[in-house]
């Protein structure tokens, strides 16, 4: 392995260390910023973007993009809230929310692979369609319910204890599962082949249409799972939540070393990318920076990440 590819692999870690170091310098926040309690908060704040980034990793590695994630998360959280309102058993609610996400992904996949349309355009359209559907479903307001066990998944009873919230464990398990799938299954390797050279994959007998549809459907299931965590965090179904979250999720994947032109990307990198986004937000809050300032910083980080992607591409060709 040469120095350059080593740097490319370590890049996301260095980025994470860099942002942590940055927020550790100012004395007014250092005391709290570096505590385990804050680490727990950051982890919990990461969960939704991290699970979304798992699905997005599959899509971006295959050379696609999905802009409808934020809307999918809102839609599936509204679905979950409505089902809890109707006293459905928790297991069925969980399955239904994930299935709803997978259904949206399936629609995306069929439109993209079956009709040979550009992922950017299809999912941009679906961003509006799904957001509208979420508002329609929720009667244009938040969907409230009395209580549910789901509400406890994104918090721990003891904020200063060692135990992590269930949602964080779900994200970790999902990440390991995705990493194994990408590496050890034929489907996983075909995702890379599609992103690296679609024409060749087709020529070699990879079922490109079916693989693409599956990619978007599986990714949709992850977005449904992220919607479930959103529901748990807000304790209500809010059709207006997660606007613009797709950008955080895409940024996390790109910061993690995936290439927007496909063929490259790792689960570990995407998870680090999600952590970087969460640390940035958390640190900015600790510093007492106004939200508009956070938005500017996140935006600049996205541009920097895409610029790094470009440098990587230039090096590879």
């Amino acid at each position: 392995m040469n120095t350059k590819s080593l740097l490319a692999k370590l890049g996301p870690f260095l980025g994470l260390l860099l942002v942590i170091a940055l927020f550790s310098i100012p004395t007014e926040v250092r005391g709290y910023f570096l505590t385990y309690a804050n680490f727990k908060i950051i982890l919990t704040q990461t969960v939704i973007v991290a699970i979304g980034a798992l699905g997005m990793t599959l899509i971006i590695v295959s050379g696609g993009i999905d802009l409808s994630v934020g809307s999918s998360i809102a839609f599936t959280s509204v679905v979950g809230a409505l089902l809890i309102q109707r006293d459905w058993p928790t297991a069925v609610v969980v399955a239904a929310v994930i299935a709803a996400g997978a259904g949206i992904g399936l629609l995306n996949g069929v439109a993209i692979a079956g009709l040979r349309m550009m992922p950017f355009i299809i999912t941009l359209g679906m961003l509006g369609v799904v957001r509208g559907a979420a508002k329609w479903l929720g009667g244009n307001e938040t969907v409230n319910y009395d209580t549910s066990i789901i509400n406890t998944w994104m918090t721990t009873p003891d904020p200063f204890g060692w135990s992590l919230p269930a949602g964080a464990w779900v994200a970790v398990v999902a990440a390991i599962g995705t990493a194994v799938m990408l590496r050890q299954t034929v489907f996983g390797r075909h995702i890379f082949a599609l992103g690296s050279n679609e024409a060749t994959a087709r020529l070699c007998g990879v079922p490109t249409v079916r693989t693409k549809i599956m990619i978007y459907a599986v990714a949709g299931a992850f977005f449904g799972l992220a919607g479930l965590m959103q529901l748990s965090r807000l304790r209500q179904g809010d059709p207006t939540v997660a606007v613009g979250l797709e950008l955080d999720i895409i940024a996390a994947v790109i910061i993690g070393g995936a290439s927007l032109s496909g063929g490259m990307g790792t689960v570990l990198g995407s998870m680090i990318g999600a952590l970087i986004m969460a640390v940035l937000r958390n640190g900015s809050q600790q510093m007492g920076w106004p939200t508009y300032f956070q938005e500017i910083i996140i935006g600049l980080v996205i541009i920097a990440a895409v610029f790094l992607d470009r440098l990587r591409q230039a090096r590879n060709t």
Binding site: T185, V186, F187, N197, T200, A201, L203, C204, G205
Partner: peptide, 25 residues
């Protein structure tokens, strides 16, 4: 040339005909 540049040598050679058991490579 029509290789998938990001895949390894063996992945390129076996692409589309990977030996598998129930989807596992």
């Amino acid at each position: 040339l029509s290789l998938a540049p990001h895949l390894t040598v063996w992945e390129n050679i076996m692409l589309g005909a990977e030996p598998q058991r129930g989807g596992w490579l």
